[in-house]
Design a protein around this nucleic acid. Structure first.
Lengths: 212, 212, 212, 212
DNA sequence: TATGAATGAGCTTTCATTCAT
DNA sequence: AATGAATGAAAGCTCATTCAT
């Protein structure tokens, strides 16, 4: 079946084009202020065509967030694999996160919205909760494990690992917020070193004490 | 004229009742999924009455967030006045913030939404931005000053004060998020000591080194 | 009952004040775009008070037009009593009409509206129809009689008197329209002589032929 | 592409159907008492469909009046081209006007309303004023020119041509009003001869004096 | 008698979704 | 498979009218 392959590829490409167009519009105008015909226009498809790929505005939105969140999380998880030292893993993760966020301005805002606000209809929310949340949770858990490992190896202080993960992610989000608030003026990744320092200073056990 | 006073008091009370009802509904369903008639129903007033106190759905929403944000910030600012020691000021501020947030669950979610995502109509957003943001900024600046003072007195390390403020607020928000995410299961203020510890450990100059 | 007399006079005065305020607003904004609270404000009464004098917005409007129309018609009818010569009666009537219209700009527009447009709710319309229309009809009929008398006396040509009345009133209204359209720039009564001339030239039997 | 032609024709037809239905309802109930759903019902379309052809109730109303006014004026202007004799031109114009008005009862009432009274919202009014007025003015000016030419040729008396145009149009409107008022009982065009006679008798210079 | 806060039916308008082509 | 005209439920908001003070 040589033909069906091409058709399928074309379908996949169309789907991606629609998602890309939708992301653009959603980021600019938010879920409720975006109309399906705007998306259709941006995607250069007829409105009916959108509905052949996504059964509703909500499904389109949910898919968009979920797929992108998954992709980001994959990159971050990968970043923590480069080194085997827990301290380096955390450093890599911080560095990579700042880079990724810096590259996906608009999307970050969309995702943040879904975490924090009761904006979308109930069904969407629960889908997103179980989707994005579980992605986010998986990620926090991954960091938790790094901290746990670090504690075992005596490189991290004996704080509750979950709380460490939450605090670190909080600091990162704090700078992301500040960056969003500033209208993306200053560099986001310029804060990487400060974050690493302020966080590790209280969490890492200094090498000299370690050796002891 | 004792009568005119009563009328005015009644007007103020009605206004508060409407705001309270609106907060309830907005928190549960978000700006767009809340209808004015739902608010009217919740406030036990006719729909027209709502419009005698607030000229539009947007104004009601904006007022709601702005007034509450202002009130919270006032309490927090006050909390930092109890002690004159910068370290104690920061401790008090963290403690007070955890308490206030714990008491205003729903509102926190609304405000978080407004910070992070383009959910409400454009005009509302810009009003909120300039309103809430300026409140928030004033607050960050207040903390900045505490850090600055602490650096001068040699009790805080010589980090950029703004960044310290951002990082600290980030940690706090991280735990607030986690708490929201958990459905308000665990105690929020139970994290107060951990936050104080993890933050001050890297930022405070230990008393023994200070004496030097 | 010396007191009841004062009360009654006061009631009548209030009624007139309300009517005057209402006329002002209606003329500026039209029936539908005028709100009762605007009228109350303009009359310097509470809204409830308006309803003690007029049972509805429509009744107020209807009363306004009817009373004013009646008053104008009275003046005009009076004007035709000064002379006993039919030709002079018509001249006086034209002259007086131009003067009155010139003095009551706004009202003219209101009244004109009621003649020509199906704008008000059905009930109002029928009241106005039977009210203003009958006033207007009475007036046309009065002129008809003058023409009839003039024909009998041999000073007017033997045209159908009703048609003469209609044509004359049409000419007058034509100039009133032109005047309204011009934004009340040129003098309205400046057209009096022309109207008299153009109309009488074809309708009056010249004195020399009359003598015959 | 024979198909795209059909679609366009269908669109035009639908537009006309909506306009026709709207005219019907507006004429019966006036601008404010007409609801969009009544129009939709009358047009046998969904309410949303109306809004695909006209962006608002006001635009629909404005378009309706302007297009029809334009069409009528076109016919009238054409009528004055049949003959080259100014007197005949005026006669033709009167005759044609009575015929057209007789055929467009309802519309006449709408237009009359717009000329004389502030019934529709302010924005609509000003659009209509500048639209209908300019059409009407163009028409008055056309007649003015006929009178001017007639004066030059010595067939009309030396009256100000503008005033003659105003007076003639006034007479015509007078009969139209009478006809409207009578509920369209008597024939309107039955008055044509009388109008021609009463107007020309005072304005036309009789052929015997002309020859001189 | 005078008031004006409270009311809610009813309006215009939007937009996700469908379906005949 | 792709289209986009048609749909109509549902929203925000207004304002004539009422009635407790």
């Amino acid at each position: 079946m040589p033909n069906s392959g091409r058709k399928e590829r074309e379908r996949t490409r169309h789907r991606q084009e629609i998602l890309a167009a939708a992301e653009n519009v959603f980021v600019r105008k938010g879920f409720f202020n975006t109309t399906m015909s705007e998306i259709a226009l941006a995607a250069e498809f007829g409105m009916g065509t959108i509905y052949q790929y996504f059964s509703s505005k909500e499904e389109l939105y949910t898919t968009l967030i979920l797929e992108k969140a998954e992709a980001i999380m994959d990159v971050l998880t990968l970043a923590t694999r480069k080194s085997s030292d827990p301290v380096d893993k955390i450093k890599d993760m911080i560095t990579e996160q700042m880079k990724i966020f810096e590259e996906s301005k608009g999307f970050i805002r969309l995702m943040a919205a879904e975490f924090d606000s009761p904006t979308s209809p109930e069904e969407t929310r629960s889908q997103l909760r179980s989707g994005v949340q579980s992605t986010y949770q998986r990620f926090l858990e991954a960091n938790e494990k790094i901290f746990l490992e670090g504690i075992r190896l005596g490189v991290f202080r004996n704080f509750p690992p979950r709380k460490m993960a939450v605090a670190l992610q909080g600091i990162i989000n704090g700078f992301v917020n500040e960056w969003v608030r500033s209208g993306f003026q200053e560099s986001l990744s310029g804060n990487t070193d400060f974050i690493i320092k302020i966080f590790l200073d209280s969490v890492e056990i200094p090498p000299d004490q370690k050796k002891k």
